[in-house]
Structure formats: structure tokens, C-alpha cells
Design a protein around this nucleic acid. Structure first.
Length: 150
DNA sequence: GCCAACGTTGGC
DNA sequence: GCCAACGTTGGC
């Protein structure tokens, strides 16, 4: 079992949206590092922190899990869509996605500011300056530590 | 293969 | 809205 963190802008798709729909294809990832993690490492049942970015209080808001392992992100094939990539094709898909399922929403947001204060978490890419990775692995000890902050 | 220009992310 | 950090693109 591995642990992850995935970012999303709540204005676009937040934890409440996921709670409503239960499962959701995590489409639109257009970063190779993030793609590789989804395609090569994420396994069904892996747990994921849901992180809200670009909002009033950025931070971790809940937990989800991998419901379906990586498959081609078809939004790359739609010329009308905002995730279109002309270099991707049906035969040779460039981008992949996983399906995620809602697990729980925390009673409160564990804010980025709070996470940054934790000495135990200084090695997390999340709290490092300039980090732009939208999907990142979380160590088991970090996972437990963060849950204990609730 | 280098690197400048440009676009995007995301905190503040 | 600003801007730092970083990834991607494209000329050479």
C-alpha cells in the first residue's frame, strides 16, 4: 500500500464535489512526473490526501483512494477541450489518469501553513518552496503524522 | 545540446 | 494581482 497527495483547485473540483459524485476520473494531468507516478506506481486501494490549491486556505481537506488504475486520458484527444494535446493519439496515448474514490472529508482543513511548521514534514515536496508537482508520494510515517494533526 | 522566451502553477 | 519557481518550446 502506498500513499499519495493530489492537488486540485476547489473552484474547479473540490472535496465536496468528489463526495457528491463518489468517484471521479482524475483527468487533465499534463506533467510527466505526475503522469509517470499515476501510470507506473499507483495501485488500486492506495490512499490519497486531497489537497486544495489556489484558494483562501490551501491545505489537506480529506482522503480518497485509487478506484481504478491508470488508463489513457481521453480528454487529450478532444480538440475542443482544454486538455487537448495534438501529440497524443488513440494508438499512442501520451497522458494517463486514474479514477479516485471519496473516502472522507476532514472536520477541518490542515493548512499548508500548519504543515510547514512541522519539523517532521520538512522533507515533503509539498512544503518546499516553488514546488509545482500536482501529484506526489507521501511516506507512511508522514501519512500517520498528518492524520494525527487532526 | 544550449538557452532565452514564454506559459503555468500556486502561495501570498 | 503580483511574482518566484519551474517546465516546455523552439531557434540556433
Amino acid at each position: 500500500m502506498q500513499y499519495w497527495l493530489m492537488k486540485s483547485e476547489p473552484d474547479v473540483f473540490g472535496i465536496d464535489d468528489l463526495k457528491k459524485v463518489k468517484t471521479e476520473p482524475w483527468d487533465g494531468v499534463r506533467n510527466y512526473q505526475a503522469r509517470n507516478m499515476m501510470r507506473d506506481q499507483m495501485k488500486k486501494g492506495d490512499k490519497i490526501f486531497f489537497y486544495h490549491s489556489n484558494c483562501d486556505v490551501p491545505g489537506i481537506v480529506g482522503v480518497m483512494k485509487v478506484a481504478k488504475e491508470a488508463y489513457p486520458d481521453h480528454t487529450a484527444l478532444n480538440p475542443e477541450g482544454k486538455y487537448y494535446d495534438s501529440k497524443s493519439s488513440e494508438d499512442n496515448p501520451r497522458w494517463f489518469m486514474v479514477d479516485v474514490a471519496f473516502v472522507k472529508k476532514f472536520k477541518r482543513t490542515i493548512s499548508l501553513a500548519e504543515l510547514k511548521e512541522q519539523k517532521a514534514l520538512v522533507d515533503m515536496p509539498l512544503v518546499r518552496k516553488g514546488n509545482r508537482l500536482s501529484i506526489m508520494p507521501v511516506g507512511e510515517s508522514e501519512w500517520e503524522y498528518i492524520l494525527n494533526m487532526l
